[in-house]
């Protein structure tokens, strides 16, 4: 891609993320910019990297499906004070399901059940209500992935950041 067009795209995506104030999907970004989803994904990855390298006060959190502009995780302490933030507790069962999805997702319900050895309909429904996971339609199947909200709670900017150090351990 031409350097100038590339910069233009980045600028628009940046404006979009800023104005949205909530997660927006790659699909949506692609539609607005009339580019394909892969390009939208690449743009966001590139921007994530730039913000991190430049140690900006705002960052992009993404679960490979949606992206949201957020504050830098390392500034959490000051922001927590400013925003009066109180952490919310997540139950053991939820954490367990979220962990599997975070490290191995996106997974179908059946794949998640295979790993956990238990039926997961209820837990998936509850996690969906809490907005901690996203269900992504792929053909006839729904695959589940941890949400941007969950990554934000952890102060992690992408699922790869989590997955990179343990992937080799999981067969």
């Amino acid at each position: 891609m031409e350097h100038e067009t590339w910069n233009k795209i980045k600028s628009i995506v940046e404006s979009l993320l800023f104005a949205a104030g909530k997660p927006i999907s790659y699909n949506q970004i692609a539609k607005i910019l009339k580019i394909d989803q892969k390009e939208a994904e690449q743009t966001i990855r590139q921007m994530q990297k730039e913000y991190q390298e430049q140690k900006r006060g705002f960052r992009i959190v993404s679960n490979n499906y949606q992206a949201e502009m957020t504050s830098a995780p390392e500034n959490a302490e000051m922001l927590s004070q400013f925003l009066n933030y109180e952490k919310s507790a997540i139950s053991q069962a939820k954490i367990e399901a979220l962990t599997v999805l975070a490290y191995k997702g996106p997974l179908t319900q059946a794949e998640l059940e295979e790993i956990r050895g238990v039926n997961c309909s209820v837990i998936l429904r509850n996690l969906k209500i809490d907005d901690l996971i996203d269900g992504i339609k792929q053909g006839d199947m729904i695959k589940y992935q941890v949400s941007v909200k969950f990554l934000k709670m952890l102060g992690i900017e992408s699922v790869e950041e989590l997955q990179s150090n343990v992937n080799c351990l999981l067969s």
Binding site: F18, G21, K22, F58, R59, V61, E68, M69, T70, S71, A72, P73, E74, A76, E77, L79, S80, L83, N84, Y85, E86, K87, I90, I95, L151, K152, M153, L154, G155, I156, E157
Partner: peptide, 18 residues
């Protein structure tokens, strides 16, 4: 990590404002 909240990212329009 969740409990020790050393790092959290906040949305621009944070819903977590109490």
């Amino acid at each position: 990590r969740l409990e020790n909240q050393q790092s959290i990212s906040f949305s621009r329009l944070s819903k977590s404002i109490n």
